[in-house]
Design a protein around this nucleic acid. Structure first.
Lengths: 155, 155
DNA sequence: TATTGTTATACTCTATAACTATA
DNA sequence: TATAGTTATAGAGTATAACAATA
């Protein structure tokens, strides 16, 4: 009945924090933060949503989206279009530059994925993916949105 | 060649952040923060070290240890003893109350572990532990210290 | 009056650098 | 002079509440 020195929960937190830190470094090469990538990904998958709707999905106060969208708009990655039916709302969409940048983000993420799981065989990768998906599902986590976004640095 | 929608790296970050958040909540019931637990664990495993030495092991500036130790000392969980040989140094040790609290922390961590991996079988838990340990080792992570401690909230 | 987006304010947390006491 | 611990200061990041425009 000798328990392992460090349990799965601790290892998950440790390895997860490492993966998140490394990813932050990698997308930093594209001059992006995790919060920016999270927003861009959301806008890419469901264009035309209001800032309030996006804030709710990211689990963050709407006020945080203002400087976040500001920065991306100034760089020409995202566009604020007025909704003709309700002029209070914006409809956020990616620009052409934004779509191209998301292609680079996808390549960076794929490279990051290979780095993190470099020590595993293909079978082990599939196994890990299965186990993690089971836990994420059981714990009620939303696919594609991780809690860290709620308190990630903006700038 | 269809890649999975979300890779292992993302799942690790997502599940890891969830595990860390839940653990923070659980030890919050003991009125402790992750940074405090990290320090207490270090002092418990290697008593008598100076604040500078502890700061280096936690990867945090020594100035952050001052209010951290202050709070634990006021609560009677930790003791600052002057080193007789070099009166500049403190030798930090747990009090009896501190040792008893660490027992509660260990029970909380065990309960947390069961909650996070509730959906897995015993075989799957062992498998996950093996895969995570492989990655942690390959990525050069220090056992028992995760990067999140470097920027955990103190109070 | 209710809601979207914005701005302003206060608060928390952190790091850098200056200070003291010992060596 | 060098080092351990402390204090002071300034900076970044966040959330809460107040505001203007539109419904």
């Amino acid at each position: 009945m000798e328990a392992p020195r460090f349990g799965n929960a601790f290892l998950l937190a440790q390895v997860g924090a490492h993966a998140a830190t490394r990813f932050t470094e990698r997308i930093g090469e594209l001059d992006l933060t995790p919060a920016q990538v999270g927003l861009l990904r959301l806008v890419a998958s469901r264009p035309g949503q209001s800032q309030q709707a996006l804030a709710k999905q990211l689990g963050t106060p709407a006020t945080r989206l203002v400087p976040l969208v500001d920065g991306l708009e100034k760089r020409g990655l995202i566009e604020r279009r007025r909704n003709a039916e309700d002029r209070r709302l914006y409809a956020l969409e990616l620009s052409q530059d934004g779509r191209e940048l998301m292609g680079q983000v996808a390549r960076t993420a794929a490279s990051h994925e290979r780095t993190i799981t470099a020590v595993l065989t293909d079978d082990e990768r599939a196994l890990l993916h299965d186990l993690l998906t089971k836990i994420a599902d059981d714990q009620g986590l939303t696919p594609g949105v991780h809690p860290g976004y709620a308190r990630g640095r903006l700038s």
